[in-house]
Write a protein that binds this DNA or RNA. Structure first.
Lengths: 268, 268
DNA sequence: CGACAGATTGACTGGGTTCAACTTAAGTGG
DNA sequence: CCACTTAAGTTGAACCCAGTCAATCTGTCG
């Protein structure tokens, strides 16, 4: 059974899956549907009736503000799912929509529950995927809150490389980014005008090349350095697994140690 | 058994708890420990050995960038816990530290697992709390990405009122905010200088009053309007439950409906 | 060949940062 | 109880990054 299914491929990269797990996951994506670009899968306020699995194309979570501006909260690429427990809530606090033409499968709440309850291997992998999505959201907050605009873009481009590669949609040096500069702007809290200028600056610095939709990264290490990017939070196997950093002082590992907590001077 | 335990109080507000559930939760917070201000509970890179429960004071999740700047990812107030599945990961991608003197309980991984597996009522409430934390993180991203600085501050002040009220730490008109302006700056992606000026502006507009640590909100509706704040994402019972907005067109509720998706024109 | 979305460019403006000084409040130890 | 210390808050002035507005260019598709 080849890893044709991006969900399978992504989850397998996070946690080992048995053949039976793989079979069940394959069934989940059995009924894909084509969705045009710029189409909502679910809107803010809607009651979730399950989760969506992206099989092809790019989608995003987003919110529209009263003044009409949009904030993209996350990009969804093939293999992305998550929102496992979302059925506990009765209204979406954000929308999910396609950015490019997509191929999407809908997984009813019940099926999700069955996977979580009856298949510990799948449950573990999906919980891990959810943790990684949360970690990615944190990176985005740091991105928008504290990084310069050029760094923000570089960071997102690095992130997309790692993520797309782990589902076989990127080579070592580049990938097709099915996004407009407006989409990038809404994800990074910038203006599309300024996205344009920053991309040009990155190009002039030789950190990226853009040919149509294709993004080429000639020197990944250089881009990562410019982006302050560390792929650790994505928990993917990387081409160059860095050596174990060794023992680092652990702050307050347990209740006993809480009694002599790290003194304030230890903080910057 | 009074709602002395803020965790109990918070979870009960999210989902009904049996007396047995309450007894178990009370035990969890049985061994609190005092921690001074500005102290790390766990650092980035550390291996989590359980979760922390804040019983008193304010703490935060944060990251430090290479240039020394800090981004606060979330404020933790009494009753906050979450990170349920964090033990699946072997390294924290961010740190957690106190901002004010705190009273904290450490809950070992095993105990968390027992609560999740053996007590469906508690599991449900804790999963809900985790979803609310994720929704709050999304609001923060919108805040930093797309709102003016004055709005950001107003939004955070509204959020803190709702959250603190739900654990009995705020009256209807105000609360003690155990944060410095630097903390607020690091949470909103601003400078402490500019936080100061924006707070003054909010004061001049009559939206807030500040006396020492005390924040007073004379006209909540006005502040919420200025902040573009809607407490819905916190899923707390609010004093003025707004009427059901009625039927709104649901986009793509199931696989069948996917076939005729919302046309692009429906999007702004 | 239009028509249109997306990308690009220029000029201007302004919100927010930076840097630095100063004030206030809250300890802390002699 | 007060001098000393330190953290937090406040203010001013200069600067600049990024937004705004608007025009133009480019590719793509019917």
């Amino acid at each position: 059974m080849p890893d044709h299914n991006p969900l399978l491929r992504k989850l397998a990269a996070l946690s080992p899956l048995s053949d039976e797990d793989r079979r069940h996951l394959a069934q989940v994506a059995a009924h894909p549907v084509a969705v045009p670009a710029r189409t909502d899968l679910i809107r803010e306020g809607d009651t979730p009736r399950g989760v969506f699995l992206v099989l092809e194309g790019m989608a995003c979570r987003y919110k529209i503000l009263p003044d009409g501006t949009r904030q993209v909260l996350a990009f969804l690429i093939p293999g992305d799912l998550c929102d496992l427990d979302v059925s506990l809530l009765n209204a979406m606090d954000h929308a999910i929509g396609t950015l490019s033409p997509c191929c999407v499968a809908h997984i009813p709440t019940r099926t999700v529950g069955d996977l979580l309850d009856g298949h510990p291997g799948i449950a573990r992998a999906m919980r891990l995927a959810a943790l990684v999505e949360a970690a990615t959201a944190r990176q985005w907050l740091v991105n928008v809150g504290r990084r310069s605009c050029e760094r923000r873009l570089a960071h997102i481009l690095c992130e997309m490389l790692v993520r797309l590669r782990s589902v076989g949609l990127a080579s070592d040096v580049g990938y097709d980014l099915l996004l407009t500069q407006v989409d990038l702007a809404d994800a990074t809290g910038m203006t599309s005008v300024h996205v344009n200028r920053c991309l040009q600056s990155l190009r002039k610095r030789g950190l990226i090349e853009i040919r149509g939709r294709r993004v080429v990264i000639p020197d990944l290490a250089a881009l990562e350095a410019a982006a302050d990017f560390d792929s650790g939070y994505l928990h993917r196997a990387t081409p160059d697994p860095r050596p174990d950093p060794g023992l680092r002082g652990t702050a307050l590992p347990d209740a006993a140690a809480l009694r002599d907590a790290v003194p304030p001077e230890a903080r910057a």
